[in-house]
Amino acid sequence: MEYVKPRIEDSFSDSPVVKPVKKADLKSNGMHLPEIDRTTKMYIGGKQARPDGGYSVVINDTNGRYVGEVSKGNRKDIRNAVEAAHANNKWGSMTGHSRAQVLYYIAENLAIRKDEFANRLVQMTNQSHADAVQEVELSIERIYTYAALADKYDGHVHHTIHRNVTLAMPEAIGVMGVICPDESPLLGFISTVIPAITMGNNVIVIPSEKSPFSATDFYQILETSDVPAGTVNIVTGGKDELAQVLAKHDDVDGIWYFGTKKGCKDMEFLSADNMKRTWVNYGKYRDWSDKTQGEGQIFLRHASQIKNIWIPYGA
């Protein structure tokens, strides 16, 4: 595997793969009651947390219209998230089967709120409602795929030397940073975060910078699906700034980055110090809605490392 690459990589795109955008519909807003404000916080150690810095970022849709605000995360928030991830030793010690149960539960709770998540996608990306519904459907299906694999992506037994067996066991990398693609705000989030936690990692997620609300809406799903606190931590804000903090952090064991060429270079360069495992897209983009590109065991392989255990037997 070290001397080959997946053929599918040849079909990745040079620019992000996005669904067609509808023009803004310029109906004037008449006077009406103001809606109840929903403040979007961050999600650290199973709790919603206000940003350390006390700043927020305005998020517009693809036509430039105001959608809302998210917390502007900073270095301190990332450090808190890393600590929370390390404090959680529940998730990694669960069996693949138990993790699958939690993943199915996530899918179940997302399915109940399908319309809400689809509407959110339309609101942020101005894609058609039908495309948005499909993105949610695909997200649910993708969670199923990894739930299915959670107790099946398994190790090997090698017959190495006389009176020895070698168990090659895939283990979680530990605490991982997951920097999500900007495009496909929900499916991109699901396609990266779910495989990473499937293998038992605890993650610090930086969701789509342009369209973060699918991720922030997801807190409530995590909270109601028996996901242990600290398994998924979400910090919103400037993608590359936060990603660099993660890459430099000595207590982060691995990092995935989906974004620009420049960002990929930074990740690899800054990860050298503590020898993090990195997986970056080198500025090549997957079509997340295409199963051959957006999912598969290769994600689990990058979310795990093999420990070889040599066991002597007999006399």
Binding site: K262, K265, E268, F269, S271, A272, D273, M275, Y282
Partner: peptide, 23 residues
């Protein structure tokens, strides 16, 4: 050595060169 491994990681960062390091 780990030291040279780190130098190689930095030198190839962002180039898309695959890397196997045994340190």
């Amino acid at each position: 050595s780990t030291e040279v491994g780190k130098i190689i990681r930095r030198a190839t960062a962002g180039t898309g060169k695959k890397l196997s390091l045994e340190l």
